[in-house]
């Protein structure tokens, strides 16, 4: 469980935030929940995910993970969290463009997974990329790369999945397949998830809604 106490990123200081906004409020993210963070562009959705994931520390207030202040964590603790607790789909995907699809997936799989690599390839095939295994990621379309990033995030045995607009380049059909894949994986691992979106509600498959 993560508890937020009056969090406000430094760049957003002095700006007006709505009553429902998560900024400067105290609330919790339960790892059993599927949470959707809904906001228009520029409100700080990516920033919010980066705060949870430890990529940004320029904020006031406190973020507590099981009552530990995450600002006190060192690189060893963050590595452990990123390896064993969180999995993430970045908005900018963060793939290795010079490596093939398979190599991109193997890099994550090498860190440890409950899945066999064949099962990972099966997921990729479900998303229509079974024939792109040996293709360099940099040469795939944005939508294809987004699907590779989704599959990569499914590999570890995570407790909480963070997703920053993971379907922004996918059509409806692929979005539905990817969402089903994600929710099945979360259910299988008994894990929670957190997704930012620009207004989509995804047929109310999420049980907690937050706003910025």
């Amino acid at each position: 469980m993560i508890r937020f106490e009056n969090i406000l990123p430094k760049p957003l200081e002095g700006l007006h935030h709505g009553e429902n906004s998560v900024w400067e409020r105290s609330f919790e993210l339960d790892f059993n929940n599927k949470t959707l963070l809904n906001a228009s562009s520029g409100k700080g959705k990516t920033t919010f995910i980066h705060l949870i994931y430890g990529l940004r520390t320029d904020y006031s207030g406190q973020i507590l993970f099981n009552n530990e202040n995450i600002q006190q964590w060192d690189i060893n603790r963050w590595t452990e969290m990123r390896k064993n607790v969180y999995s993430v789909i970045f908005q900018d995907l963060q793939l290795f463009p010079n490596l093939s699809t398979e190599e991109n997936l193997r890099i994550k799989w090498d860190l440890g997974s409950d899945l066999k690599f064949d099962e990972v390839i099966e997921m990729l095939s479900k998303l229509g990329l079974g024939d792109k295994l040996n293709q360099s990621c940099g040469t795939l379309s944005q939508g294809q790369q987004q699907r590779v990033a989704i599959v990569r995030a499914m590999i570890p045995k995570f407790q909480y999945l963070l997703m920053d607009e993971p379907f922004s380049h996918l059509d409806e059909e692929n979005t539905a397949i990817a969402l089903e894949l994600i929710l099945n994986r979360c259910e299988h691992l008994n894990a929670g998830c957190f997704m930012t979106t620009l207004g989509e509600t995804y047929n109310n498959k999420f049980n907690q809604m937050l706003y910025l």
Binding site: L55, N76, R82
Partner: peptide, 13 residues
């Protein structure tokens, strides 16, 4: 970029 990405996906320095 590669070093940062490896750190972000869970690799230790």
């Amino acid at each position: 970029y590669e070093v940062q990405t490896l750190l972000h996906i869970g690799y230790h320095p």
